[in-house]
Amino acid sequence: MPKAPAGTIYRGREGMWSWVAHRVTGIGIFFFLLVHIVDTALVRVSPESYNEVIATYKTTIVGLMEVLLVAAIVFHAFNGLRIILVDFWSKGPRYQRQMLAGVGILWLVLMVPFLVRHLSHVFGG
């Protein structure tokens, strides 16, 4: 019985790493969502308390975290469409690599204008 050589590792390449990235971004977005619903609920307490918490969203450090959040959301959204195509389009599995490249291109097309606009808000005051 041949033994598996030591130190092998599953190398799923694009398919595996996009799956990992989809999980990591999904988990991150979920925990932000929990926080975001609770902070928005402060509109029901008073205008003052809501304005106080939303002021933290306008600080530089949180402004940069929003870039990470939007980057994660945009990737998760387009990669989700790729997953749908892999599942439902007959040629989806064959073109999953090319579609991941498409995800990257669409991600850039949305992130560049977002970065320009959002960073000018964050640093422009």
């Binding site: 509109v43 205008p47 809501y50 304005n51 969203y57 929003e66 977002f114 606009r117 959002h118 964050v122």
Partner: peptide
């Protein structure tokens, strides 16, 4: 995201009056 972060003053416009 577009209405709250891109339009107008973006993140800086967000407050109670905006949500209301």
């Amino acid at each position: 995201l577009f209405v709250n972060l891109m339009v107008g003053e973006g993140i800086n416009a967000l407050d109670f009056a905006f949500v209301a």
